[in-house]
Amino acid sequence: MAIASPDTPVRTARITRVFIYLFLLLFALFYLLPFGIMVINSVKPLSEITGGNMIALPREWTIEPWLSAWSTAQIGVQPTGLRPYFINSLMMAIPAVLLSTAVGALNGYVLTKWRFKGDTLIFGLLLFSCFIPFQIVLIPMARILGILQMASTTQGLILVHFVYGIGFTTLYFRNYYAAFPTELVRAAQIDGAGFFQIFWRIMLPSSGPIIAVSFIWQFTNIWNDFLFGASFASGGAAPMTVALNNLVNSSTGVREYNVHFAGAIMAAAPTLLVYIVAGRYFVRGLMSGSVKG
């Protein structure tokens, strides 16, 4: 807080503050409510839910729905639980995030520090890819995956997300490196460092915050993607989001709401975790000291 002294021009400041906090608390609770309901119902036996008791705390606590969702629930026709699809999603998201971030960083580096004729046009075209709706890419992408014989594979999904992510990651890194002092690059050139040495030794070590941003953005998007997953990787290669849908929408047997809730939390957990872990690195200040502070 910037206020150095408790003395304020307004007499009622303290009361105002109480109201502000009450208000904020109310909104926070409101937004947390759905998640709270999900957690509560995921640790309840199904009978308590069907008995019309959605809001109340469970009378009988159980982790059975979680175990079921993870390893035995019926996904499509197989009683495999969500585990294989969770692994699918990881196998898809991690390489795609790493690849798109690496290429984005390299693009940003070239577009700011190795300017060439037409570079703004190329950047403009890359930016354009951020604004193309997913649906437009579907059919050409299906065709390309078919030609590459990558249809319905995790590798195919990696390719799709990698290529689709380059636009965003390039945008992030270009804007970050635009503020990066060019004199550092020039100094390194005089010191005899080459193109990749400058990138690896000078640029990347100072790119912590933007790498974190790129990771969070890409991971969240790729993990949460449903359209590409459903279009290009149905069946055994389906990602978590598609499997969750199959779990919830299965038309046979009893609808196990508690298992659905547990599965939904599982699907959301990795992105939550990424925010909690990587969010700390959003903090700026890694650049301090390179130039006049």
Binding site: E183, R186, S288
Partner: peptide, 20 residues
């Protein structure tokens, strides 16, 4: 000739020290 092969050294206005 590339800057690194001219046998010169430069001191920049902003010092351009590698922050990492």
């Amino acid at each position: 000739v590339h800057p690194s092969r001219r046998n010169i050294a430069m001191v920049f206005q902003s010092y351009a020290l590698y922050p990492n």
